[in-house]
């Protein structure tokens, strides 16, 4: 019934076992690409082999890192802005339900805006600095986070609310004690999705115009007929996204220590 799983070697082995299929499938994909690029006769300026992409990435690593930093900065700034805004608004919506009906259509429309059209406009209005990137990142991540939070509040078990009310807790107490913690799983699910959107959003904004950044780096590489460097930048952005994604998973693990107990309980299932 109660087991504290502090069996780290076994956990580690389990982690490897879980990661193995992903490693194998990605490895096979790269191998197929490599063989295809080498023996099909397609020119490297059209389809560079992964080995070449990797070699070029190493040669240009300083430029890549130099351009990755503004992208990461824009991503994190924009995401922080959209998170704070989504959190504030989600609380407002939770306390004043009519607001939801008034505001949600606007946000849904904001999600239908094609980035291709909006990114150059935002750059036109706000220049080549950090501002337009932050705005675009916020634009693509705000709504998913807002929806996740609002849904999370509503997932609060009705009987917990009933118990709190009978205890004499007001709406604010009930929000802090029950609705907010109930929303955490939804919040983190939203966070995982949004953080990947955020990187894409930042790169898109840079693509539309920037002094530095992975987006503008890709654009320049493409214009110089260097698909290998475009792909190297893609690799860097994928790595950045993966690291950020991993951070959200780690954060969730730290913020929700009960989650493991929940999972174990569900795993055993029938016993309870």
């Amino acid at each position: 019934m109660v087991s504290s799983s502090s069996n780290y070697p076994r956990q580690l082995a389990g982690l490897f076992a879980k990661a193995a299929p992903a490693v194998i499938s990605v490895g096979l994909l790269l191998l197929a690409w490599e063989l295809c690029a080498r023996y099909s006769g397609i020119k490297p300026t059209i389809l560079p082999a992964p080995s070449r992409v990797f070699a070029q990435a190493m040669l240009n690593r300083e430029a890549l890192v130099d351009n990755a930093i503004p992208t990461i900065r824009a991503t994190l700034f924009g995401f922080a802005c959209s998170l704070s805004a989504a959190f504030a608004l989600s609380m407002l919506v939770d306390f004043f339900q009519p607001l939801r009906r008034a505001l949600f259509p606007v946000f849904v429309i904001s999600q239908t805006l094609p980035l291709v059209a909006i990114a150059p406009l935002v750059v036109l209005w706000f220049g080549f600095g950090l501002m337009p990137k932050v705005l675009l990142v916020a634009l693509v991540t705000f709504f998913p986070m807002l929806v996740a939070l609002v849904q999370g509040y509503e997932a609060t078990e009705a009987e917990i609310g009933q118990v709190l009310r009978a205890m004499g807790a007001g709406r604010w107490r009930a929000f802090v004690l029950a609705r907010l913690p109930s929303a955490l799983p939804y919040f983190f699910a939203g966070l995982r999705i949004s953080i990947t959107y955020a990187v894409v959003g930042a790169i898109f904004a840079e693509y539309a115009g920037a002094a530095k950044g992975l987006g503008i780096y890709m654009l320049n590489a493409k214009n110089n007929f260097r698909p290998d460097l475009v792909l190297a930048a893609v690799g860097v952005s994928a790595a950045v996204t993966l690291v950020l994604f991993g951070l959200t998973v780690l954060l969730q693990h730290l913020a929700m220590p009960w989650e493991r107990a929940d999972r174990q309980a569900q795993g055993k299932g029938a016993g309870r």
Binding site: E159, I160, A166, M167, P181, W258, A261
Partner: peptide
């Protein structure tokens, strides 16, 4: 209503995070 009753629902309504 707050003062007199302590209420226990059918499902335990324990907070999983506490």
């Amino acid at each position: 209503h707050g003062g007199h009753f302590a209420f226990m629902p059918q499902r335990d309504a324990l907070m999983p995070w506490r």
